[in-house]
Simulated scan of single mutants.
Amino acid sequence: MHRSLTSSTLAELRRPRPYPAVTVVLPTHRREPDNAQDPVRLRNLLAEAKERLRADPAVTAERAADVSGRLDKALEEVDLVHAEDGLVVLAAPGEHQVWSLARSVPARVVLADTFLTRNLVAARAAERPYWVLAVSADRVTLWSGTPERVTEHQADGFPLTRDLEDPDAQRKERIGDLPSTFQDEQTRTFLREADQALTAVLRAEPRALFVAGEAAALSLLDDVGSAADGATPIRHGGLAQGPANAVHEAVRPALAQRAEAEQAAALKELDGAQGRKQYAAGLDEVWQNAMTDRVGLLAVEDSYRATVRDHGGHLVPAESGDLDARDDIVDEIVERALDGGAEVRFLTEGALADRGRIAAVLRY
């Protein structure tokens, strides 16, 4: 359930499906006693989805059976023992997926000709995914990271490995011609190949990059290529072999520094926009501008959630369960802003207290 939610994955999830594409969304809990009822709630939502499939006149019995079977297979893959804050189950004819989110979501069942992706989109934006390249003389690994964890990226040529044994080492040592590990041509060639592989990954999936390794390894990587230009160096050897928790711990201080700097920059941009009258604050005002693609930068407190309904073209507070209530309006705004080309930054709780907890820099 803890796969990397990439841009290409989201694009694939958002394409039209043969009806019905079923989305089941459930808030989950990490600890007892709150998590005790998660399995029951999940089974109830899946049962509701199956009942709606059977009752829908637009769904044939054969297709209802197919998608119901996919929901059953998805249930087998759910790991609530290691649950985070939200769960999304997707099922359509011939396919199913399960996604665990480090972001709370409202419970719902949706049948449509596309999957409901706004919660996935917002969760990915909030995670601010990054890459960690771990470099050594004989192994280069790439790790996909979120604030919660890193997982090894085993694709696109990674990991790169080689044998350090030099068959002519004894002769070279006798005549004093055995170069140090990070000076020989074989190592230069090896790291040049790593640089080329990294270039391709960053072109397909641009993210913040951290590069970890001994100082000599980082220096040589800079010398032989340019993919890591602008990356944050982590001078910590021994990480190319992992494990994942060691890589995550090594990068954690740099992640905290990056988040602090980005928050300060976002607040500065909001102040400047307010002075230029290119500014919106509060849920309704930001929503109005997001719907017309005027948002250039969206800033929202990470923990901010709101339930509203549309009343005469404006958002007004509502209770969950009210007719026409929209429980995930913040995620809806995030998705729409991203679709309109905006940059989205999630800030710490209280950072936007005087701005209605959500604010935007407008394009005009």
Results as ranks from 00 to 15, higher is better:
D72V: 04
R118M: 08
R103E: 09
E95K: 07
Q97N: 10
H96M: 07
A126K: 15
L120G: 05
R139C: 06
L87G: 06
V81Q: 13
R128S: 13
A91E: 01
A123P: 03
V67N: 05
Y130K: 05
V67H: 03
L111D: 01
V121K: 02
L101I: 03
D66V: 03
A123S: 13
E77S: 14
P129K: 02
P106V: 08
N119K: 01
A126I: 12
A74T: 04
D113H: 13
L87V: 05
D66G: 00
R124P: 09
N119W: 04
E76R: 15
L142H: 11
L133D: 12
T114W: 10
K73I: 11
L142A: 06
A137T: 15
V98N: 08
H96G: 05
D138A: 14
V140P: 03
R118S: 09
A137N: 14
V109S: 01
A91L: 02
A137H: 15
E95T: 11
L133W: 09
L116K: 02
N119Q: 10
A91W: 00
A107W: 06
K73Q: 15
E127N: 04
S136P: 12
V140Q: 01
Q97V: 06
A83S: 12
S68I: 07
D138R: 15
G94A: 09
R118H: 14
L120A: 07
D79L: 04
V132A: 05
A91K: 01
Q97Y: 14
A123Y: 06
A126E: 15
V121I: 08
A112Q: 11
A65D: 12
P106N: 06
V132D: 00
V109Q: 03
V98M: 09
S68W: 04
L80W: 14
E77T: 13
L116N: 00
D66S: 04
